[in-house]
């Protein structure tokens, strides 16, 4: 899983969010490392929806513009947790305290 995808899924782990909220949350979680452009975000959202990792849970109109809220599916949550575990294990190899 690539880093932007990881942070898009991570941005949705607490609650459903709309496009702009995903961008800001992903930037916040990655300490501003992942600043998604709108085109990149929607390509990823398309792909993740098609793969069944996220779904649209709410539609609304705000300031005359359509707005959809995206949420993790059970498969999406599992994929995120598997990736987090994989990265944590990889990090442990490097960061473990070695005996003196």
């Amino acid at each position: 899983m690539r880093e932007p995808t990881y942070f898009i899924l991570a941005a949705l782990q607490d609650e459903p969010r709309h496009g702009y909220a995903i961008i800001t949350r992903a930037a916040e979680l990655s300490q501003q490392r992942v600043t998604l452009s709108t085109g990149t975000l929607y390509q990823a959202l398309d792909r993740l929806s098609r793969d069944g990792l996220i779904e649209v849970v709410r539609d609304e109109v705000v300031n005359g513009r359509a707005r959809r809220h995206y949420a993790l599916t059970p498969d999406g949550r599992t994929a995120l947790e598997v990736e987090a575990t994989r990265m944590a294990e990889a990090a442990r190899i490097v960061l473990r305290v070695r005996p003196a």
Partner: peptide, 30 residues
């Protein structure tokens, strides 16, 4: 979701040349 994308672009308020490459690429891929 073109209208929704437009809403996100307005909210982010970035300069258009920063968004243009990925928007163009995304449109052609779609």
């Amino acid at each position: 979701p073109r209208d929704e994308m437009l809403g996100v672009l307005e909210e982010t308020g970035r300069r258009w040349h920063r968004e243009a490459p990925s928007l163009l690429l995304g449109a052609l891929r779609a």
